[in-house]
Amino acid sequence: MTLKGEISHSLLDLKQLKHLDLSCNDFGGIQVPKFIGSFQNLRYLNLSYSNFGGNIPPQLGNLSELHVLSLGSFHGPFYDTTSMANMKWLSTLGMLHHLDMSGMDLSKATDWLQVINTLPSLFQLHLSGCELSNLHMYVLSVNLTSLSVLDLSCNDFNTPVSQ
């Protein structure tokens, strides 16, 4: 059974919530609710394959305890691809270990590598099929020493990935 419709604000009554998994549902293209950024204790957030639409709310950057953020491929075949032009809010997630944004349109996110470079604890990064075309190498130095999984498949890089 899949969940559908709106997500109730009454979830905010769960003050100690640490794990929220809304993956594999059909929310009909609604935007990810901004109030999800209010869960101060949240460590795991999975919204993948849930047919959310619109922009990712920057309020998710308030989830400073977050270790896992999975937004990958959460649009369905009948909804527009979700895009993100400004990723700066991700840089506030210093405890993030796992980030999956596969299938999102990041073609306008010229700061993606700069932002990823600010995540010192990142072990897994999944950016498959994100319409990335270059690495924007104006980043002075890349410090991703904790990274053990890097998925950049199905992109169209016009610059070398390693230099």
Results as ranks from 00 to 15, higher is better:
residue 2 T to N: 08
residue 3 L to K: 10
residue 3 L to W: 13
residue 3 L to N: 08
residue 4 K to E: 12
residue 7 I to D: 06
residue 8 S to Q: 04
residue 9 H to R: 15
residue 9 H to Q: 13
residue 11 L to Q: 08
residue 11 L to E: 06
residue 12 L to A: 06
residue 13 D to E: 11
residue 14 L to Y: 12
residue 15 K to E: 13
residue 17 L to I: 01
residue 18 K to N: 14
residue 20 L to P: 15
residue 21 D to I: 09
residue 24 C to Q: 07
residue 24 C to L: 08
residue 25 N to Y: 12
residue 27 F to S: 02
residue 28 G to L: 01
residue 28 G to Y: 04
residue 29 G to S: 02
residue 30 I to F: 08
residue 31 Q to M: 09
residue 31 Q to K: 14
residue 33 P to I: 09
residue 35 F to M: 04
residue 37 G to F: 09
residue 40 Q to T: 08
residue 40 Q to P: 04
residue 42 L to K: 12
residue 42 L to P: 02
residue 45 L to G: 08
residue 47 L to V: 05
residue 47 L to Y: 04
residue 48 S to I: 05
residue 50 S to F: 08
residue 51 N to E: 06
residue 52 F to R: 01
residue 52 F to A: 01
residue 53 G to I: 00
residue 54 G to E: 03
residue 56 I to R: 04
residue 57 P to R: 06
residue 57 P to N: 05
residue 60 L to A: 02
residue 60 L to P: 03
residue 61 G to H: 05
residue 63 L to G: 06
residue 65 E to K: 14
residue 65 E to G: 08
residue 66 L to R: 09
residue 67 H to Y: 11
residue 68 V to F: 08
residue 69 L to T: 03
residue 69 L to R: 06
residue 73 S to V: 01
residue 74 F to P: 07
residue 75 H to Y: 10
residue 75 H to G: 11
residue 76 G to S: 11
residue 79 Y to K: 14
residue 79 Y to D: 15
residue 79 Y to E: 15
residue 80 D to C: 10
residue 81 T to A: 14
residue 81 T to V: 13
residue 81 T to K: 10
residue 82 T to V: 15
residue 83 S to F: 11
residue 84 M to K: 15
residue 86 N to W: 10
residue 87 M to I: 04
residue 88 K to F: 07
residue 91 S to T: 15
residue 93 L to C: 03
residue 96 L to M: 05
residue 97 H to Y: 13
residue 97 H to A: 09
residue 98 H to D: 10
residue 99 L to A: 09
residue 101 M to T: 03
residue 102 S to G: 14
residue 102 S to R: 05
residue 103 G to K: 10
residue 105 D to R: 14
residue 105 D to M: 04
residue 105 D to E: 13
residue 105 D to W: 13
residue 106 L to R: 07
residue 107 S to F: 13
residue 107 S to M: 10
residue 108 K to P: 04
residue 108 K to Y: 12
residue 109 A to S: 11
residue 109 A to G: 08
residue 110 T to I: 15
residue 111 D to S: 11
residue 112 W to P: 01
residue 112 W to N: 09
residue 112 W to V: 00
residue 114 Q to Y: 09
residue 114 Q to M: 10
residue 117 N to R: 07
residue 118 T to S: 15
residue 119 L to N: 02
residue 120 P to F: 03
residue 121 S to V: 03
residue 121 S to Y: 07
residue 121 S to C: 07
residue 122 L to F: 01
residue 122 L to E: 01
residue 123 F to E: 12
residue 126 H to T: 02
residue 128 S to T: 03
residue 128 S to V: 02
residue 129 G to Y: 13
residue 131 E to Q: 14
residue 131 E to T: 09
residue 132 L to I: 05
residue 134 N to R: 06
residue 136 H to W: 05
residue 139 V to K: 13
residue 139 V to T: 12
residue 139 V to P: 05
residue 140 L to T: 11
residue 141 S to Q: 09
residue 142 V to T: 07
residue 143 N to W: 04
residue 144 L to P: 06
residue 145 T to P: 03
residue 145 T to A: 04
residue 146 S to L: 00
residue 146 S to F: 00
residue 147 L to E: 00
residue 147 L to T: 01
residue 149 V to S: 00
residue 150 L to W: 00
residue 150 L to Y: 00
residue 151 D to N: 02
residue 152 L to H: 07
residue 155 N to T: 05
residue 158 N to K: 11
residue 159 T to Q: 13
residue 161 V to M: 12
residue 161 V to N: 07
residue 162 S to R: 09
residue 162 S to V: 06
